[in-house]
Amino acid sequence: MWPLELIAAGAMIVSLTFYALLGGADYGGGVWDLFARGPRALKQRALIEEAIGPVWEANHVWLILVVVILFTGFPVAFAAIATALHIPLTLLLIGIVLRGSAFTFRTYDVKRDERERGWGRIFSIASIITPVLLGITLGGIASGSIRFENGIVPNGFVRPWLAPFPLAVGFFALALFAFLAAVYLTLETRDTLLQEDFRRRAIVAGVVVAALALAVFLLSGSGAPKVRAGLSASAWAVPLHLATAISAIAAFAALWKRAYGLARVCAAAQVTLILWGWALAQFPYIVEPDITIQSAAAPPATLRLLLGALALGALLLFPSFYYLFRVFKGGLASLKDEG
């Protein structure tokens, strides 16, 4: 039997993965909204709106689940992260608020006019800033410079995250989300011209992802030594890099061949592997160097209940999600009928 706290930490990373794969792509949609260009710009925007509309709020809850598991299962880690990263987290929240409300206001503002474009602008700019801040936060956690002892933050409130490595992670996250979104969007329409638009965008974003991945890896040498050590020296390092590289190359190949279904699977696998690689590299730390999964873990009574609730919740959740996605993403044919 695995220790409870390990399962809880795993559940947290699973939730974060779902947030990246689903919620992340919704942000990516906002990026492509801003960069909608050419003769089909309006159609691109409409497709993005249609794809995000019914699902973004449900996708967003994955982030809340991450936070809730963190403060229930690892309260001390939550306290340390929320204290030392107060500034980027606050900016992240402002981004989340603006993205969500501007998207909704745009959808429900009746007249198709200037103001609607204003909401669209806020929505898309917030969709760019928020992933960067999310990445900065994760980069700050990985950097090993977050300390919180006896109510004091010895490294200050700025240095742990305003550094090359976390910033690089921020842009890496943005590129990944934009890549995911472009790949998914090829499957949201039957209009081959629109598919081509997003196929091209996916390929460009994929190249940027690769470049930024290299930058993040190089910067981690000084920016996040523990993670770097894990990523280069562990027994699992080589297989992990191989698997990630294969899924990345396969995603490119599938895009090239217009095998969009396969591209989606490969892109999702790539993002998943990156997240799990990071998690493994910093294992057993939640916040390196002071807080481990074990030292931060809530007592077994809490963890047992939390895991019970997660298991029961999953039983309700996955069928519901399946239904949601089947209704809105399943039959493209029915989508076309409505025009």
Binding site: V61, F71, P75, A79, T83, L306, A309, G313
Partner: peptide, 27 residues
């Protein structure tokens, strides 16, 4: 943070259950 560090393990539970209520609500 000190409150959550102290109380998270005690009252995180209702917040977690709330999380699942949010999921069903949003879906």
């Amino acid at each position: 943070p000190q409150f959550m560090g102290y109380a998270g393990a005690i009252i995180g539970m209702p917040f977690s259950l709330e999380g699942f209520a949010f999921f069903t609500e949003a879906i």
